[in-house]
Design a protein around this nucleic acid. Structure first.
Lengths: 345, 345
DNA sequence: CAAATTCTCCAAAGCGCTTTGACAAACTCA
DNA sequence: TGAGTTTGTCAAAGCGCTTTGGAGAATTTG
């Protein structure tokens, strides 16, 4: 069922039918109702491609998700972010276009996406501390919103980020206030901007308290359970092991917990842990009844997806507006995994 | 840069330029080279929408991912599946279109996708034991491949699944061979087809051995860490607790481990666990060096994504071919989490 | 060497929609 | 009542591409 057929059935011109369906005022209410009824009855939906061609708007947003070239990893937080963004798109009638691209052909992928004109804008995921995609996108001239920020980037651009620095500073402070002096950081890969900011928050809080950060207690790796386990195991084997861990993800924190328990220690008694919690649907820290497993800095990545999508849609409908920036704060929620350090002897 | 501009620059007709770029034989090699060079120089890419409109093929595949209405959960296995499918699409020049849809408007989403004609086919995720989407898609007439199967569906359709029944039967048998008699099942939601088949494998193997399955040792819930923990905790508190757990996901298995350790027991000594391992990039069971954490039934969901995508593309290019079915076997890999049950006393 | 083929290339139609510009018909108001 | 305005509709152009049906030039054939 296409427009021509529908208008033939109605005995109206395509113009009138199109206008009736798209809410233009040049058509009487009586015919509009008739047209809408017929459209519904025949299950008519305008062909997206034809509509896009005619209007110049694709009504689709692209998500370019980098896959770690070396390890071919695809971060599970994307799933929840996409779920959030998807909600916003659905409300606005936009579609979602996904490209999963190896680190090393991002540029190609972006140019392709722009030249083929199949999206009206895109979301940049997982920005690096020095993010070449931002100037590239400015050059290409496609609206975009970055989920995160890029420290090396000085010009204006739209982003939505959480206050990683503050969250990790607070968490570090909280552990130190409990009496911990040997706090380890198990971070994500530190060419990623968020990881850098988290380290920054951690390091600066320690320094403010007169504690010299110990490089042996800082590790950066992809945030898997296995890596968390490896790093924590190595640190617990040190002569003077940390009494607390600050961990960049719930997933690596599970590995940290495993390492702690392998040593016969108890998390939340012998060793404290604070994890960052993206509030992933499959990795809830709390069931809403028991005390949460981990003390955590929490910020919903799904909500971030919703908001980033909304920002992008606004930007698309107001092309000459200034870039918008949003900084979300993470909550520090208390769980079972923190306590004062065990007294010696 | 569009076709008209490019052909003006070259002093050729749009026809010739189009044909040169699309490999038609009606154009001399000399001009073809000239055209290709100019296209590359001007970074020309045909407008997807125009091309789609002209050819009738969208060159895009839709993925409709259900979001659990009740709990709003989006399963992390999708991320890895999509990564696999994305690889296949990229090779074939296809794009990926994503819809995240609440259970209860799946039908609407499908009809919409079909009527708007923005995909050439789609992948059905997470089929139920009785899956209404399959007859619906047949009616709509869009090519599709199901990731999984639907037991209630009798007609032919294309699917790719793993042998869940066999995998869980083997795992059950393995635990029994070690001497376990009280083996618990912590399953996914049992209106999902895969979960039903897994239970079937588990139950039938027990029965074959003359062990009566105990409903108190079978739990079905969304496969989160928290649910795994809850279920295992409850079972370990029974008068006669299980000595082994068969768990439908690595993620819930982590919760099971937590429950075991909370009781002061050691997994792989006091209590055995076998988990199903989708080989997710962020949840590897093994680092390739140490003995894997869990004894597991393993099948890469990423590879499933690759293959399902290939099947769909083949089906699209051969519209009248018969539906294809692929049953992948899961490996049973030995890890640290299984041992004979502790002897009594 | 004329006729028949084969090579190259082109003009124009068509994909399904939106949107511009025109035009009757119906309504104003003096 | 007639000029001016508003209302409701339509025909046709255009979005950027592919593809059909020729048509002239180059090549081969008898």
């Amino acid at each position: 069922m296409n427009l021509k057929e529908l208008s033939d059935i109605l005995g109206l011109s395509q113009t009138t039918v199109s206008r009736a369906l798209n809410g233009y005022p040049e058509v009487s209410e009586a015919t509009r109702r008739k047209v809408q009824a017929a459209a519904a009855a025949h299950n008519y939906r305008p062909n997206t491609r034809a509509k896009a061609l005619a209007t110049g708007r694709a009504m689709a947003i692209g998500h370019v998700i980098p896959i770690s070239t070396k390890h071919e990893m695809v971060n599970p937080v994307f799933a929840d972010f996409l779920a959030g963004a998807g909600e916003s798109y659905a409300k606005a009638g936009y579609d979602m276009h996904l490209s999963l691209v190896a680190d090393d052909d991002q540029e190609h992928a972006f140019r392709e996406l722009a030249a083929k004109r199949n999206v009206d804008g895109l979301i940049v995921h997982a920005p690096l501390a020095n993010e070449p995609r931002i100037p590239l996108l400015r050059e290409i001239g496609l609206p975009f919103v970055v989920h995160g920020r890029s420290s090396g980037e000085t010009g204006p651009y739209s982003w939505l980020d959480i206050n990683n620095r503050r969250a990790f500073s607070r968490a570090t402070g909280f552990l130190c206030d409990l009496g911990h002096r040997r706090v380890a950081l198990i971070n994500g890969l530190e060419h990623m901007d968020f990881a850098l900011r988290r380290r920054d928050g951690y390091v600066s809080n320690l320094i403010d308290r007169g504690i010299t950060p110990d490089p042996a207690m800082m590790e950066a790796a992809e945030m898997t359970e296995i890596n968390g386990h490896h790093s924590a195991r190595a640190m617990l084997d040190m002569d003077n092991p940390p009494t607390a861990f600050l961990v960049s993800s719930m997933i690596s924190a599970m590995g940290v917990r495993r390492a702690i328990e392998e040593r016969g220690l108890v998390m939340g008694r012998d060793v404290s842990v604070i994890a960052h919690d993206d509030d992933l649907s499959y990795f809830k820290n709390s069931d809403g009844v028991d005390v949460p497993m981990f003390t955590a800095t929490r910020s919903s990545v799904r909500e971030a997806g919703r908001q980033a999508a909304d920002m992008l849609l606004t930007q698309i409908s107001h092309p000459f507006s200034d870039p918008e920036n949003r900084l979300l704060e993470a909550e520090l929620t208390l769980g079972q995994s923190t306590a004062p350090p065990p007294s010696k002897g």
